[in-house]
Structures are given as structure tokens and as C-alpha cells.
Nucleic acid binder design. Structure first.
Lengths: 140, 140
DNA sequence: TATTGTTATACTCTATAACTATA
DNA sequence: TATAGTTATAGAGTATAACAATA
């Protein structure tokens, strides 16, 4: 509790939504936020099952199917049969996917970069300390 | 630049998307994130024009119209003609809207509260210091 | 029978374009 | 003519339900 007795959780939810809409407006051409996020998760794990991807992305199975389908069509990821379980599919990045992700990490996020530049060094430091915490909160 | 040379902006975008999807899953019954966010903005300003609301919520005019329409149907906000300009409409909270918002601020956010509880005091402090910065970044 | 993933369908949110009314 | 807002339409993203294949 800090501001007007408003809970941290409530403020976090509000600011998350607003940042999300901002990112959408100045969106990265070509790939949606969900698609980029999925690519990042797949890269992190190397190769993982559809169900794991769904969990990590806070998605339901059919949504993961669709997301992966779109990324596969673009040649950014590939689906392989899991040798250990005939029902399961394993997804992994293609070299193109890996390169795309790396490029995005540097070229992206036009609108927000400008705003970040207006922060003081101290504020920026606070933000960078908070990022790992946020990332942990966002984990499944 | 901190983690693997990845820009703060890129990490912020990723984590924002993931938190957003998490919030949606354990969503607050009844009102969407956008609706709650709009209510909060309207409360902050007391009364404002559709166009201002759209700007502050990073929305385009028709999206604001729809959002306001939904909130009006529920009796949470009201639309009045701007006495100074016959074209403009002013939106403001009804007592119901005000009460709903206040209730949400405390009752909401089931999933994330649990996670926040797992943070150390120091981590929580970093997060609370970062919130105002994030809120500033999310401003129009 | 339980689990993994897909297909079918519907809903929400948001955008662009065209329109109405007032300035 | 320019501005504020609405209506009409389209697209992206995600959910639930029903299904197929494998364990």
C-alpha cells in the first residue's frame, strides 16, 4: 500500500494495461506482442511442448496452437514430433526465428525508447532493478 | 542494457505482455482491464472529453466511444453535453462507478496478490519505487 | 480411461474509413 | 472548412466445447 491506500497489485494491473496499449499503438511491425513473447520463451527453453508453451505464456491450448501455427507459417519456428511421446509436439526456433528475435531486441520499441530517455539515471536504475522482479511475477 | 545486452524497452514490452495475459486469465469478474483503466482515468480527471479519454488511454476515438458506451450501460459513468461546445461530450463517474472502482482497488487481482506475497521486503520496495516511474512512462 | 493437441465457433478489444452535427 | 463524436466494418487475439490420436 502506498498511494491513496491503493494496493500494489491494483496499480500494477492498471499500469500494465496502459503500457500494453501504448506498445500496441507503436507496435513492432510484423509480429504481435504475443508472437514475440512466444519466440522469447521458445528460445529460452530451446525446445518445449505445446502445453508447456501455453502454460508459460498464460494461454489455453488452442490459443497456443494458433500462435505456433502463425509463427511456423513465417518460418520462425518448427514443430517436431516428440520421440518419447507420440502425442506431443516439440517446438523450437529456426535460425530465421533466432535471428528475428535478436534483431527485434535491438530495433524494436520506438515509442517507449523516447520516454525512457527522459528518465533520470536514478529512475532508470530503479526500473532496471524492478525488471527482474516483474519478470518473476510474470512467470507461470 | 542489462541482461544479455537486451534493451530495457524490449524487456519491459515482454514482461508487460506476459503480466497482461496473466491478469486476463485471473481477470476481475465483470469489468475488463480497459474498462477499469478508463474508470480510473475518469476519476482522476473528474470529468473529461471523449477525445481526452481516448488520448489518455492510448485509444482511437471509436474505441473510446465503445468503451464509454459499455460503462454507461452499466450505469458506472454518465455522458453530459459540454455546455461550452455543442459537439463535445463530457464523461464522469456516477456514484456507482466511483464505488465500483474503490471496491476493485481492494478486492481485485487474485492471482498476482499471491505472487506479490512471495517477494522479499526489499524486492517489494524496489517494485513500489518503480511503480510511479512505470505510471509516468504509461502517460500519453 | 487420461492426456496431448487440433478444429470449430464465438466473443472481446481495437483499428480504419465513412458519416453526422456543430464551430 | 475543421473538429468532436458516432456508426459500420474488419482483423487480431483468446476462450470454451467438441474431437482425434496416442499412452
Amino acid at each position: 500500500m502506498t498511494k491513496r491506500g491503493v494496493s500494489t497489485a491494483a496499480r500494477l494491473q492498471l499500469v500494465t494495461g496502459r503500457l500494453m496499449r501504448m506498445f500496441r499503438r507503436h507496435g513492432a511491425a510484423g509480429l504481435s506482442a504475443s508472437q514475440i513473447s512466444a519466440l522469447a520463451t521458445i528460445e529460452e527453453w530451446g525446445s518445449l511442448r505445446m502445453s508447456s508453451l501455453a502454460t508459460h505464456e498464460s494461454l489455453v491450448a488452442p490459443a497456443a496452437t494458433r500462435l505456433v501455427g502463425a509463427l511456423e507459417e513465417r518460418g520462425l519456428i518448427q514443430r517436431c514430433a516428440d520421440p518419447a511421446d507420440g502425442r506431443a509436439a516439440l517446438v523450437s526456433l529456426t535460425p530465421e526465428g533466432s535471428a528475428t528475435l535478436e534483431a527485434l531486441r535491438h530495433a524494436r520499441v520506438v515509442g517507449i525508447e523516447t520516454r525512457l530517455a527522459t528518465l533520470s539515471a536514478a529512475e532508470r536504475q530503479v526500473l532496471e532493478r524492478a525488471l527482474p522482479i516483474l519478470e518473476r511475477l510474470a512467470q507461470p
